[in-house]
Computed example of a mutant assay.
Amino acid sequence: MDTVTEIVTPILEAENFELVEVEFTKEGQSWFLRVFIDKDGGIDLEDCAFVSERLSDALDAMDPDPIPQAYFLEISSPGAERPLKKEADYEKAIGAYVYVSFYQAVDGEKYYQGFLQSFNEEQLVLKVRIKTREKELTLDRKNIAHARLAVQF
Rank of each mutant, 00 (worst) to 15 (best):
M1R: 05
T3L: 12
V4T: 09
T5W: 06
T5A: 15
E6D: 14
E6T: 05
E13T: 13
E13A: 05
A14K: 14
A14S: 14
E15G: 13
E15C: 13
E18A: 08
L19T: 10
V20D: 06
E21I: 02
E21Y: 00
E21T: 01
V22H: 04
F24G: 01
F24R: 08
T25C: 00
K26V: 07
K26P: 01
K26C: 10
E27Y: 12
E27P: 00
Q29I: 11
S30W: 11
W31Y: 15
R34V: 09
F36M: 05
F36P: 01
I37R: 02
K39S: 06
D40W: 08
G42D: 05
G42V: 12
I43E: 05
D44K: 08
D44P: 02
L45G: 04
D47N: 04
C48A: 06
C48Y: 12
A49H: 08
F50L: 14
V51W: 06
S52G: 14
R54N: 10
L55Q: 02
A58Y: 03
A58T: 02
A58K: 14
A58H: 05
L59P: 01
L59Y: 04
D60T: 08
M62A: 04
D63T: 11
P64I: 11
P68R: 01
A70R: 13
Y71T: 10
Y71Q: 09
Y71F: 15
L73E: 03
L73N: 02
E74T: 03
I75C: 08
I75F: 10
S76H: 05
S76Q: 06
S76A: 10
S77N: 01
S77Q: 02
P78H: 05
G79R: 05
G79S: 04
E81D: 12
R82L: 04
R82I: 04
R82Q: 01
P83R: 04
L84A: 05
L84P: 14
L84D: 13
K85L: 12
K85R: 15
K85S: 04
K86H: 11
Y90C: 07
A93P: 07
I94F: 04
A96P: 02
Y97K: 00
V100Q: 10
S101D: 13
S101Y: 08
F102R: 00
Q104G: 01
G108P: 00
G108L: 04
G108M: 03
E109F: 12
E109I: 03
Y111K: 11
Y111A: 14
Y112R: 12
Q113Y: 11
Q113C: 15
Q113G: 01
Q113L: 14
G114K: 08
F115M: 08
Q117Y: 03
S118N: 15
S118D: 15
F119M: 09
E122W: 07
L124K: 00
V125C: 03
V125Y: 00
K127Y: 11
K127C: 10
K127T: 06
I130D: 14
K131Q: 12
K131S: 11
K131W: 09
K131F: 11
T132C: 00
R133H: 12
R133N: 13
R133P: 01
L137I: 11
L137H: 09
T138R: 13
T138Q: 09
L139P: 15
K142P: 03
I144R: 09
I144L: 06
H146K: 15
A147E: 01
V151G: 03
V151P: 02
